[in-house]
Design a binder for these strands. Structure first.
Lengths: 341, 341
DNA sequence: TATTTTCTGATTTACGTACCTCAAAAACTG
DNA sequence: CAGTTTTTGAGGTACGTAAATCAGAAAATA
C-alpha cells in the first residue's frame, strides 16, 4: 500500500501537523525533528499524491500567452493549441488568457508585457522578438516574481526561465543535410527564403543551414537569402523571380512561413526542372504539397507539444520545481511523404 | 467557477444521490429525471474532476506486460520504460507486473497469456508473435473481460483492443524513400537485412520498402532479404559476406535489430566504398554510428511513447472510454546526425 | 525560578467525487 | 383502494492532502 502522510507521522513519531510543516516548508520545526521526518519520508518512499494535493489546495494558476497576430498556419495552430489548453484548463487548474500583439514589433511586445505584469499572473509565455525593450520587460516580469517562458522563438541572454521550442540551428543543419543528399551529387545553386532576418529562429536556421552547406556540400552554392515576411503573395513572387533568374537552382530551403505562395510558384515550374524543396511546418498546404511531390521533406515542430511544454514548465516554476530537460526538449520532426502523420 | 455535482443537483432540482446515480450509470432513476440531470450537466458544462474521482474510488488498475526476453537495445529500452512506469505506478493508480517469455515463440506466449488470464488482471500488453495459439489466447483473455493491447508488433485479426506501435509498412516506405534519394541517381544493388520474417513488424517493413523501391527507384535492385535473428554476431557475418560478394551494393536497409554487428561490418569497408545505410531505432550503438557517418539515417519509434500509450489505452478500456486515435498514434521519427535528440 | 519564545500535537474543515444506507415519496399493480 | 415496487431524498463516510487553530510542551532567556 502506498504510504500516506499518516504513515509518515506514525513512523517518525510526530504528529500530522509536523509532517505537513516539513512537507510544505512551513516554519516552526526543529532541525532534528525535520530530519527525522525526512528520513521517514525516504524510508517509506513516500510520494505526495499530487491529485489529492491539488484537490486540497484548490489553487489555480493564472497564465498569459502573448501571441503575435500573424495569420500563417503555424501561428494559427499554436493559437489553436493554446485554446485547446484553455478548454482543458478546468481540469488542470490553470486559467489561461491570450493577449495579441502586432508581429515583429519589439516595442509593442514590451509594452504588452508591462501591461500584463500589472495584473500579476503566475506566469507568462510569449513569442520573442529581439530588442532591448523586450529584455527589460522580461527583467521586470521576473522582478515581480512572474514565471517567464519564451515560445517558438527564444530570447537568449534575457532572464526568461525557459525556451519552449526547437533548436533552430539544428533544424537548419538538418535541412542542409537533406537538401545536399537529395540533390544527389549534382552541382548547382540553392535558394533560401526566410520570413525576416530580424527574427531569431529564422536567423538561426539560416546559420545552421549555411554551416552544413559550406562544410559538407561545396558543390552547391547558396544564393543570398530572400526575405518575404512570411507573406504568401510576396513569397510566390520572390521565388518565381529567383527561379526565372537562375535556371540552375536545384534546391530550395523555405525556412519561414508563407509556404502557400512558394508552393504556388513551384507548381508553375515544369516537373523536370523543379528543385528539391525542404520547408518547415506541417500544415494543410505543406502536407498536400508533400504528398504531391512539390515539397520533398518537411521539418516540423509540434505546436501541441510546445504549448503543453510551456504550460508544464510555467506550472513547475511557480511550484519551484526544476525543469526536466529531457522531457521538455521539443523534437525536430522530419516528414517525408511516407511518414506523414 | 467550475461546476460541481452540487451545482448540477441544485440546477436540476434533484438530490446529490440522483446526480450520482446518473453520472455513474447506477439504476433506479426514471427516464425523465435522468434527462433532466443530463440537461443540467450539459447546460452547466460540467466535467467530472478526474483527480477527485480517482481519489474517491481508490481503485487501482492491475496490468501485466508480457515481454520477450530479447537482449537487443530496443527491447531493453522498452523494458526500462515499463519499469519507469512501474515506479510511477503509485501516482497513477496502476500496478504493473512484467512477465518474461522466450522470443519468437508463439506457444510459449500463448501459454503465458493463459496463465495471466487466471489472475484476472484488468489489462494485458504484449509483443505479438503470430500464431493461431496466440489468437486463441487473446480471445480467452477478452472473454474474461481483460483489456488487451499489442505492443511494438501487432496481431491483426485478433480480438486485441489496440496496437501501440508504428505503422511498419510506412516505416519501410520511408526507408526506401530515404535510401533511394540518398544514393543520388546512381545505379546499383540494395541489401536488406531483417531479424526474422516470422515477425510481423519486420515483414511489414520489408513489404513497404520493396513497394517503394519498385515504384520509385527502378535503377536500384534489391537483393533477397537476409535474416540474422536480431543477433549482432550473425548480422556482422551476413553483411560482410554480402558486401564482399556484391561490390555494387550502394545501399543497406537494416530493418531489424542487431545493428551493433552491422556497424562493425561497415567499419571494415573503406570509406569510399561504404553503402548508404538506413537502420531502425536510436540506441547507443546506432547513435554513435549516425554521428560517425556509418549510418546515414535512422528510423525510430519512441519506446516511452509506446509504453505510455499502451497504459493509457488499457486504462481507458477498463473505464469503457474510446481510444483517441490521434493521441495514440506513434510517430515514425527520422533522425539524421543533425537532429538527434 | 519565572517568563518568554519556539516548537509540537491534536483536531478540524475543506476540496470533489464515489458509494453506501435508510427512509420517504411517488408511481404503478391488481 | 390497499399493497407493492420503483424512484428519490437526505445524510453520512471515505479518499489523501492542505491549512488553519489552539493548547500544551520544551527550550531559551531574563
Amino acid at each position: 500500500m502506498k504510504p500516506t502522510v499518516h504513515d509518515i507521522a506514525r513512523s517518525a513519531g510526530v504528529s500530522l501537523a509536523t509532517v505537513d510543516r516539513v512537507l510544505n516548508g512551513r516554519p516552526g520545526v526543529r532541525h532534528v525533528t525535520r530530519e527525522r521526518v525526512e528520513k521517514a519520508i525516504s524510508n517509506l518512499g513516500y510520494v505526495r499524491d499530487v491529485a489529492a494535493a491539488n484537490l486540497a489546495k484548490g489553487r489555480t494558476y493564472s497564465f498569459v500567452f502573448v501571441m503575435p497576430s500573424n495569420d500563417n498556419s503555424f501561428m494559427i495552430e499554436i493559437r489553436d493549441e493554446v485554446h485547446a489548453a484553455m478548454s482543458r484548463s478546468g481540469a488542470e487548474r490553470t486559467q489561461i488568457r491570450v493577449v495579441d500583439v502586432p508581429p515583429f514589433d519589439a516595442q509593442a511586445l514590451a509594452d504588452a508585457l508591462d501591461r500584463i505584469a500589472a495584473d500579476k499572473p503566475d506566469g507568462v509565455a510569449f513569442v520573442a522578438v529581439e530588442g532591448a525593450q523586450v529584455h527589460a520587460a522580461v527583467a521586470r516580469l521576473k522582478e515581480t516574481g512572474i514565471a517567464v517562458v519564451t515560445l517558438v522563438s527564444d530570447l537568449p541572454g534575457s532572464e526568461r526561465d525557459h525556451f519552449a521550442g526547437i533548436d533552430n540551428n539544428a533544424a537548419g543543419r538538418t535541412a542542409a543535410n537533406l537538401l545536399g543528399r537529395f540533390t544527389g551529387g549534382r552541382e548547382g545553386r540553392i535558394a533560401a527564403i526566410a520570413g525576416s532576418m530580424l527574427v531569431r529562429d529564422h536567423r538561426e536556421r539560416l546559420e545552421g543551414f549555411l554551416a552544413v552547406m559550406g562544410e559538407s556540400f561545396p558543390r552547391l552554392s547558396v544564393l543570398p537569402v530572400m526575405e518575404a515576411r512570411d507573406d504568401p503573395a510576396l513569397a510566390a513572387e520572390v521565388v518565381s523571380a529567383a527561379l526565372g533568374h537562375h535556371p540552375d537552382i536545384i534546391g530550395l530551403y523555405s525556412l519561414g512561413a508563407g509556404n502557400r505562395g512558394i508552393v504556388h510558384a513551384l507548381r508553375e515550374v515544369s516537373e523536370g526542372a523543379r528543385p528539391v524543396v525542404v520547408a518547415h511546418e506541417l500544415t494543410r498546404t505543406t502536407r498536400a504539397a508533400l504528398a504531391e511531390g512539390l515539397i520533398d521533406a518537411l521539418l516540423n515542430q509540434d505546436a501541441g507539444h510546445e504549448v503543453r511544454s510551456a504550460i508544464r514548465v510555467l506550472k513547475g516554476k511557480v511550484e519551484g520545481l526544476p525543469v526536466i530537460a529531457a522531457q521538455e526538449r521539443i523534437r525536430i520532426d522530419i516528414f517525408l511523404k511516407d511518414n506523414m502523420p
